[in-house]
Design a protein around this nucleic acid. Structure first.
Lengths: 349, 349
DNA sequence: CTGAAAGCGCTTACAG
DNA sequence: CTGAAAGCGCTTACAG
């Protein structure tokens, strides 16, 4: 028995007595040879265990791999368990699949803090969320298409939702009930890490660094309109959008004395809002009577329960689709701004 | 200005007056040249915009891409939004990251029903869940490592959890409360699609086709031990582990007349159990007084709420880690069986 | 419709 | 420690 070396296109061509070009055409360009010969080649290929042109060689030769890399700012562990990121990936995958492309998943928080060299195999890059450092972007092969989602890279295409107007709309709705003690729970909005109450010592990130700043701007526009001095509204900050990280901050808030405890929580994500809802219920607080809560995102978990979350629904799946279409050249690269929808649930009717 | 062709290793070598081997070694084998020369080369490379060896060429030359493909039986949309699949991916990604590998995501339910050719770039394959057809496996490059998770491929490594004993343990616990009308809600267990009550006309899949059969076997062993005739226990089947698909079946069950409605639901997943819990609460049924519910999986959503789900916790992250380690050769390929943990929550104390 | 030949950008024995 | 050269497996003008 010969050593089981994988059969190559060249081997097959030799065995069938045709040129390598003809075998290649049989697989890639049906119009370049007779259907009969093509059938013969494909049939023999299967028989002899030739699985088709090797992707590594093909990609070197053509310069294209049919692979699109998605770079997630957060760890993969976090992103894969986050409903919003998952939906974004779904949307991306849907378009890539339909176009015969596949998805390479990279984390911006890789252990070596650098994109692995293998990333350069990708035909294009979709980058999601704020990068821990822009150094990573510099690592990416230049001259390959890049689309930024939920942040901006100078001179590159991007996809956003209208955070400011959406936040304004939900805050306006919530303030319509004339809360006595509104409060805001921000997400990753401080320059320095802060998982708790935001004080005067905390500087906030600017709008070009995080989308949550635009959400705060929207909230504050509504405050001003309702005659509320934004500085009088207490704010907390959450460092990571997970139940575990949210919970202690929410507990701190809910355990304030009755006359200090907010009666309206404007949360920057559904995850935060759901944590607040669960912990409020556990303490016997009635929602919305004792405490009104609003979220942001519109994830399924907030809608398939009672009471349903009042929130802003953003179409993360569509965000992913748009980004993927731009990367594949199915639509021209540009700065796209997607709309959102105010969803009135029972947590803040 | 010259056309902005990407600079290659060869260009760089020529410009620096060294051989291509030396440049290659500067990037790949530091021990093969003096630190000083290496620094010089790396420095000049950065200066001249050479980003390092091209991944396509490198992978062709070495035969390895540093990419591992994960093939998911379900659609990517489903898998990415499923907590168990997400955790599995987290575990895989964790190990791959640490080893400088990256993850290529493929769906077994691709539109063309075939693995795209670009998949053959991967160094190895992790296949998760039952394949719609084994034809797809035949498409994969032979002679490259493959690990099956939650199912078996003849002659290949696999990772499982102990479904039968785990199901037996939770059923035994639940039956200890002497329910009057226990019922089972299965997941994808019928030969033919069935989203509803299972009747005598429905054939069930065998244990080599789905892990949920082993779960049912565990339940039924507990029934027998408690003197309950398994055939007397009504069973329903769920076609897809999502709230939307579960809900109508659960409603059908909960809306049975009081004297027919089960007082114990043994569910094959936490998603099913949570849907039952939410819909029961919406109907004013008291859990666990009127209705006891158990799940399977141990997802976070079932534990970060009140009442907490009684369930079996499987460590999906670890399952992913083990599979990834086997693929990378960090542990020998074998049939690994991971343990589980009975978690007693308030839905079935 | 078919074939001979160049070359994609690397890595790696091997010789010096 | 360094360099010349072969070759990984393909695709693609181009000539016939």
């Amino acid at each position: 028995m010969t050593p089981p070396r994988r059969i190559t296109l060249k081997d097959l061509a030799a065995q069938l007595g045709v040129s390598t070009a003809t075998v290649s055409n049989a697989f890639n360009r049906p119009d370049q040879l007779s259907p009969k010969l093509r059938e013969h080649i494909l049939h023999e290929a299967r028989l002899r265990g030739y699985q088709g042109p090797d992707a590594k060689a093909r990609s070197l030769r053509t310069g294209r791999s049919q692979i699109v890399a998605v770079i997630l700012a957060e760890s993969l562990t976090y992103s894969l368990n986050d409903a919003v990121a998952s939906e974004l990936l779904s949307g991306i995958a849907e378009v890539l699949d339909a176009q015969g492309h596949t998805l390479l998943l990279l984390s911006g928080r890789q252990s070596p803090a650098r994109v692995p060299g293998s990333a350069s195999i990708a035909d294009g890059f979709i980058v999601y969320g704020l990068m821990p450092s822009l150094a990573m972007l510099a690592d990416l092969p230049a001259q390959r298409p890049l689309v930024a989602v939920d942040f901006d890279v100078e001179g590159q295409a991007s996809v956003h939702v209208d955070n400011e107007p959406a936040a304004y709309a939900i805050a306006r709705h919530a303030l319509g009930t004339s809360p006595k003690r509104p409060a805001v729970i921000n997400l990753r909005l401080t320059e320095q890490p802060c998982n708790g109450r935001i004080g005067p010592e905390h500087a906030l990130l600017s709008a070009d660094r995080t989308i949550t700043r635009a959400r705060l701007d929207g909230f504050q526009r509504a405050f001003a309109e309702h005659g509320i001095e934004p500085d009088d509204v207490p704010m907390w900050n959450i460092e990571e959008n997970t139940h575990e990280v949210c919970a202690p901050v929410i507990e701190e808030i809910l355990d304030l004395p009755d006359d200090e405890r907010p009666d309206l929580l404007l949360c920057m994500s559904d995850r935060i809002a759901l944590t607040a809802l669960i912990l409020a219920e556990a303490r016997g607080l009635r929602v919305p009577d004792d405490l009104r809560i609003t979220g942001f995102d519109g994830i399924a978990e907030g809608q398939y329960r009672a009471p349903r979350l009042t929130t802003v629904r953003q179409d993360s799946v569509e965000k992913g689709r748009v980004a993927a279409r731009m990367i594949l050249g199915l639509e021209p690269p540009s700065s796209r701004l997607l709309g959102t929808e105010l969803v009135i649930g029972e947590t803040c009717p």
